[in-house]
Design a protein around this nucleic acid. Structure first.
Length: 417
RNA sequence: GUGGGUGUCGGCAAGUGGUCAAGCCAUCGGGUUGUGGCUCCGAUAUGCGUGGGUUCGAAUCCCACCAUCCACCCCA
């Protein structure tokens, strides 16, 4: 127990971490290119923020949050998602008083108490973007474009963009009523999970995998047919914008976001090469969230993108993730004067910007070479009594085996990495 | 919360009631004291997830628990 990570968490080991660095650096670069600025919010917030923001009745709030009281008796929750904290910061810092829209991105850990499985952890990590201050579908298209371009750049190939509109509270209520009326006579035939969905989230029933339910649901009223004029226009506009920038999508009327705050646009990037967790990136518009959390009536749109799922998918797609060189130069020494000189040289070379290593386990000479090899050193510098007395070292190219004599003062220039 | 799979050295893995628990990779040491990747030799589990039980005898059978993986629900 003492030596196990907590359930649902993972150590990201040194030999894996370059993958994370790779996607993080690319993420930052693409967001900056699109004019987004990074925001860093705390790892935890007051519990009420999520209750109000995500919605009291959602699974996330009802059973998945890491909530505790601090020593001052405040209820604290480790953030289960990134949008609510971003919204809170947007309001708290009066960001709506700046030039609009406000475009921000982040790279955060999230916490959800769930039963772990493939692509699902209790601590997971996500990238996110949010645009505040515009109801225009140009913003939605831009948000989707970031995800699309980023995923493409990451070498992910088998991915589909699915879009939908979940309407606004007005049209959603109409649809919900129509749907329940439609299903009411068939209620007894529904599967058990769908029976429980009937009151909680009837739209989910449209998505059920049970063949019986699939049959029952045929001809059911779809959200898209119940959109009010404003939502209908918005959805058409979104499609126009996506067409204009050449982003392919599939309308999937079954997409339902599990977080209450979404309105109008809902979208997901999905894959079937990741097992059950096919959604790598999901998001949408939230026109009422800022107000719900206590700010002015300002609309927003954004997404979350799971880093673990992204990396898994990159690997499944055979994407190339460049692995940095670990060691440019290894310094092998014989005898104490050489060891002392080697340390001085190591420091000089490091100050010159090279990655330099030497043995600190008193390995014999052969062992030092073996170690150099294991480190993947491109060059090995050999220093012994001979070299010290003639003021030069022997420089060996580990790949070619070629060995040259280099004067002390020329070493930095002789190394070409 | 419900269901299924799995648990033998750092990693992979044989063994399925009876001599000291194979083998491979990795690690460490060495092959006459200044040159790696190849090769050769040697070392490395009184213990087989944990605790009980059955038996003359258990890694091998039974029970419980734990861990982990996968699936449902839901989500990134």
């Amino acid at each position: 127990m003492l030596t196990n990570v907590p359930k649902g968490t993972k150590d990201i080991m040194p030999e894996q971490v370059y993958k994370w660095h790779f996607v993080e650096n690319k993420w930052k670069a693409i967001c900056e290119k699109y004019g987004f600025k990074e925001i860093r919010t705390p790892m935890f917030e007051y519990t009420e923020l999520f209750q109000r923001g995500i919605g009291d009745t959602t699974d996330v709030v009802q059973k998945e949050m890491y909530t505790f009281n601090d020593h001052g008796g405040r209820s604290i929750t480790l953030k289960p998602e990134g949008t609510s904290p971003a919204v809170r910061a947007f309001i708290e810092h009066n960001m709506y008083a700046d030039v609009q829209p406000t475009k921000i991105y982040y790279d955060i850990p999230c916490f959800r108490y769930e039963k772990p499985q493939s692509g699902r952890l209790r601590q997971f990590h996500q990238f996110g973007v949010e645009t505040f201050g515009t109801p225009n579908m140009i913003a939605d298209a831009e948000i989707i474009a970031i995800g699309y371009d980023f995923l493409k750049e990451m070498g992910v190939t088998d991915l589909t963009l699915e879009i939908n509109s979940v309407g606004c509270p007005v049209c959603r209520a109409n649809h919900r009523k129509a749907l329940k009326d439609f299903l009411a006579p068939k209620y007894d035939c529904l599967c058990d999970t769908c029976k429980s969905r009937y009151d909680k989230n009837p739209m989910r029933i449209l998505d059920c995998k049970s063949p019986i339910d699939k049959e029952l649901v045929k001809g059911a009223p779809m959200m898209l047919d119940y959109l009010c004029e404003e939502c209908e226009n918005a959805f058409e506009e979104l499609k126009e914008n996506l067409d204009a920038i050449g982003i392919e999508y599939k309308v999937n009327a079954g997409i339902v976001r599990g977080l209450d705050y979404y309105t109008k646009t809902a979208f997901e990037f999905v894959t079937d090469s990741l097992g059950a967790q096919g959604t790598v990136c999901g998001g949408g518009r939230y026109d009422n969230l800022v107000q719900e959390v206590g700010g002015p009536p300002i609309p927003g749109v954004g997404f979350g993108l799971g880093k673990e799922r992204l990396i898994m998918l990159m690997e499944a797609n055979g994407a190339v993730i460049p692995q940095p060189v670990g060691c440019d130069v290894f310094i092998a020494t014989m005898g104490k004067p050489a060891k002392l000189y080697g340390q001085k040289l190591m420091r000089e070379l490091r100050l010159a910007g090279l990655k330099v290593q030497m043995d600190d386990l008193q390995r014999n000479f052969k062992g030092q070479f073996k170690y150099a090899d294991r480190l993947g050193a491109k060059y090995t510098v050999v220093i012994g009594d001979d070299e010290i007395s003639r003021g030069a070292v022997s420089l060996k190219n580990m790949a070619t085996g070629e060995q040259t004599d280099v004067k002390f003062e020329d070493i930095v220039n002789a190394i070409n990495v």
